[in-house]
Structures are given as structure tokens and as C-alpha cells.
Amino acid sequence: MKGAMEKVREIWREGRRVGKEDPRRIVHSFKVGLALALVSSFYYYPPLYDNFGVNAMWAVMTVVVVFEFSVGATLGKGINRAVATLVAGGLGVGAHHLASLSGPTIEPILLAVFVFVQAALSTFVRFFPRVKARYDYGILI
């Protein structure tokens, strides 16, 4: 029991040190908490839930994944996420259309090849220093 209490005190001291080092971290933590509380309310407010349903989870996930320490970093990550989603959606529609033209036997094989090529290329491009610095998150998505 004493060991657990000492561990709690150590964590408390470390938290105070981090907060004193840069008080904006505390403000940022409260902002993230508030944003999560607001988007989580989609589940408890019937008109919103009726429109979004279980898809409201994506709003929660977006806050968790995109919210950064600075406004610029959050905007950059959000834009990367939006562009990546649009590009991936377009590639998905195109791949499905091309694969559906090949017939039911070849379609799953062709889709697997498309997934392999896209995953391999995306992974390789992430090794380029300029791409990694600016677009890593978008390519990862």
C-alpha cells in the first residue's frame, strides 16, 4: 500500500512540474476534455443521435486524433485528414469500378492487388524526408 501511495505522489509531482514548465499544457488538456465532452453529447441528445447514430463515434475519434497543442498543428492535421479521406475515397471508388468490370472471379484478386500496390507505395513514400515532414499523417490515414 505504501508503495502505491508513493507512486501516486511521484505522478502528482511530475504533473505539477510539467504544468509549471508550460501552463499552456494544462489549458490544452482542458480544451481537449471540453471538445470530447461536447462531441460525446451526440450520444445523449436524441435529435443529434437520431441523425448521426453510431457514426457519432467518428466525431469523438476525430477530436482524439486531430486535436494538437497549437491551432496551426490542429488545422494542418485536419486538412491532411480531409484531403487523405477524399483521395482515398476516390481511389476506392476507382478501384471498385475497375475491379467490377473484370467479373466476379477476378474482382477480389484485382482488389487485393490494388490494396497491395496502394499500401506498398504509401509506405515507401513516407520514407521521403520532405513527404514525412509535411504529409506523414495524411499518407498514414
Rank of each mutant, 00 (worst) to 15 (best):
K20M: 09
V113D: 05
Y43I: 01
G15S: 14
P47K: 05
I109C: 01
G19T: 14
A120Y: 10
I79P: 01
P47D: 07
F127R: 14
W58V: 06
Y137Q: 09
I79W: 06
V83A: 12
R13M: 05
W12S: 06
E107V: 02
E10H: 09
K132S: 11
V63T: 07
Q118M: 10
P129W: 04
R24F: 13
T62F: 07
E21K: 08
L91I: 09
L86I: 11
Y45W: 14
L111D: 04
E10V: 00
L38D: 02
D22V: 03
P23S: 05
V131S: 03
G92F: 11
G19D: 15
L101W: 10
R81W: 05
Q118L: 13
V64T: 05
S102T: 13
P129K: 04
A120E: 03
M5I: 09
R130F: 14
A88H: 03
Y43C: 01
G94S: 11
M1P: 08
L91G: 03
K31Q: 14
G19Y: 09
V32C: 09
V54F: 08
R130G: 12
S29C: 10
I106N: 00
G15T: 06
H97M: 12
E68A: 10
L38Q: 03
A84C: 04
V83F: 06
A37I: 02
E6F: 08
A59S: 11
I79M: 10
K20A: 08
L140V: 06
V63L: 06
T74D: 08
G103D: 03
F42C: 11
L111Q: 12
I26F: 15
M61G: 06
R81Y: 10
F116C: 07
V131F: 07
I141S: 13
A95P: 01
I106Y: 06
V18L: 13
V65H: 01
A88L: 12
L75W: 10
M57C: 04
S102F: 04
K77I: 02
A82L: 15
R13I: 02
S100Y: 00
E68Q: 15
A84E: 02
A73K: 13
I26C: 11
I106H: 01
V27E: 14
A35M: 11
L36H: 06
V117F: 07
N51C: 04
R130W: 12
G15E: 10
F114K: 02
G92K: 03
A120R: 09
G76V: 02
Y49M: 05
F69D: 15
A95T: 06
Y135V: 07
A59T: 00
D22P: 01
E68D: 13
F114M: 08
P104R: 12
L98D: 02
A84R: 05
V117R: 02
F69S: 09
R130I: 05
S40E: 10
V115W: 04
Y43A: 12
E68H: 07
V18D: 10
P46T: 09
V18T: 07
V93W: 12
W12L: 11
F30C: 08
L34N: 01
P46V: 04
K20V: 00
D22G: 00
Q118K: 04
F124Q: 08
Y44Q: 03
K132Y: 08
V66H: 02
W12P: 00
F114H: 05
P108V: 05
